[in-house]
Amino acid sequence: MQEFLASTTYIDWQHPAVLAQAQELAAAGGEQADIARRCFHFVRDQIKHSWDYRQNPVTCKASDVLDHGTGYCYAKSHLLAALLRANGIPAGLCYQRLTIGTEPPFCLHGLNAAYLPEHGWYRLDARGNKPGVDAEFCPPKEQLAFALTTPGEQDFAGIWAEPHAAVLQSLLTQPTVEAVMAHLPDGDLSNDPTPARLAHLL
């Protein structure tokens, strides 16, 4: 579990601002699931999805997402992982491959998995709700932002301790949210040896 608790370049929970926010979210106490719920709601509702709001700058590090209050789904998942890890809750990154509209092309979608003692690994999606998107924290039931509806869409079973290289390539090289949208990351991660693969996640 240690890699899912680590503070890293992009999941930088030891950054003072991220740590302070994590401590604030934990201040009301409760079980780990209660703290995870507050972290989830904070990222889902208080951090704006960059494309929904056409809001720059492009963020990637958890601390930058918190500082600017905006991020694509991938960046928001980095912040949620950081807040959870700062509170001692193992957390990683998950990906789906979805259509951008109702047909190809495809792109990756970023979300999280958190280890909750009562439920094991539980996926949660803090992308941000809007008409047609209703993600919730309701373990043991999963209620993610998107369902697979188009042939070719995929739900990858791995949990990544670090952001996938394809995601970093997009977020770190594109200068604006519009440029990221034009170069969204994509790929079939089914046989990717990078993630720590955990049985029975799905």
Results as ranks from 00 to 15, higher is better:
Met1Pro: 00
Glu3Asn: 02
Glu3Cys: 01
Phe4Asp: 00
Tyr10Gly: 01
Tyr10Lys: 13
Tyr10Gln: 07
Asp12Phe: 09
Asp12Glu: 06
Trp13Cys: 11
Gln23Met: 05
Glu24Cys: 12
Glu24Ala: 14
Glu24Asn: 14
Ala26Trp: 13
Ala27Ser: 15
Gly29Thr: 09
Glu31Pro: 05
Ile35Ala: 11
Ile35Pro: 06
Ile35Glu: 15
Arg37Phe: 06
Cys39Ser: 13
Phe40Thr: 05
Val43Ile: 14
Arg44Cys: 06
Gln46Ile: 13
His49Arg: 12
His49Ser: 07
Ser50Tyr: 02
Trp51Asp: 13
Trp51Leu: 12
Asp52Glu: 03
Asp52Gly: 06
Tyr53Phe: 15
Arg54Leu: 13
Gln55Trp: 08
Val58Ser: 10
Thr59Ser: 07
Cys60Gln: 00
Asp64Pro: 05
Asp64Ile: 10
Gly69Tyr: 13
Thr70Arg: 09
Tyr72Ala: 13
Cys73Arg: 01
Lys76Gln: 11
His78Thr: 01
Leu79Tyr: 08
Leu83Gln: 06
Gly88His: 11
Tyr95Gly: 01
Tyr95Glu: 05
Gln96Pro: 05
Gly101Phe: 08
Pro104Val: 01
Pro105Ile: 07
Cys107Ala: 09
Leu108Pro: 05
Ala113Trp: 03
Ala113Gln: 08
Tyr115Gly: 04
Leu116Ser: 00
Trp121Cys: 10
Arg123His: 10
Asp125Asn: 04
Gly128Asp: 04
Gly128His: 02
Gly128Gln: 08
Lys130Trp: 14
Gly132Cys: 04
Val133Ala: 12
Val133Arg: 09
Asp134Gly: 08
Ala135Ile: 15
Ala135Phe: 09
Glu142Arg: 15
Thr149Gly: 08
Thr150Arg: 02
Pro151Lys: 11
Gly152Lys: 05
Glu153Asn: 11
Glu153Trp: 14
Phe156Thr: 00
Ile159Gln: 00
Ala161Leu: 03
Ala165Pro: 03
Leu168Ser: 07
Pro175Thr: 12
Glu178Cys: 04
Ala179Asp: 02
Ala179Tyr: 03
His183Gln: 15
Leu184His: 00
Leu184Val: 01
Asp188Ile: 00
Leu189Asn: 07
Ala199Cys: 05
